[in-house]
């Protein structure tokens, strides 16, 4: 077992732990940071799974998309922009 396998396993464990925390958390606002942790871990494991230059583009696209999604949920939950 060499080091990329260990890193990949770590990413998987972090993602699963954060997912369990998201499901178990009661408060909606506290779920969102753990969702970001999930997206970090998944982006890392995408890059580690395939050693290819395009994998970096794909991981960046997933990261941007996931951040946009959680930002939109948080912004809607808080009730829109302040200066209105």
């Amino acid at each position: 077992m060499n080091w990329p396998d260990i890193a990949l396993a770590l990413c998987g464990i972090i993602a699963l732990y954060a997912a369990v925390r998201v499901v178990l958390e009661k408060d909606t606002m506290r779920k969102l940071p753990f969702l970001n942790v999930v997206s970090f871990a998944i982006s890392g494991s995408i890059i580690l799974l395939i050693p290819h230059p395009l994998a970096i583009v794909a991981a960046a696209a997933y990261f941007v998309g996931s951040t946009l999604e959680s930002n939109a949920i948080a912004s809607k939950y808080a009730g829109g922009p302040k200066n209105e």
Binding site: T28, V38, I42, S45, S66, S70
Partner: peptide, 21 residues
């Protein structure tokens, strides 16, 4: 909606494993 995000996150490594970048 947040739980739906977890489903998408779980699917992505399977897509990457097939090489469909």
């Amino acid at each position: 909606l947040i739980s739906l995000g977890i489903i998408v996150a779980g699917i992505m490594p399977f897509l990457a494993d097939r090489g469909l970048l």
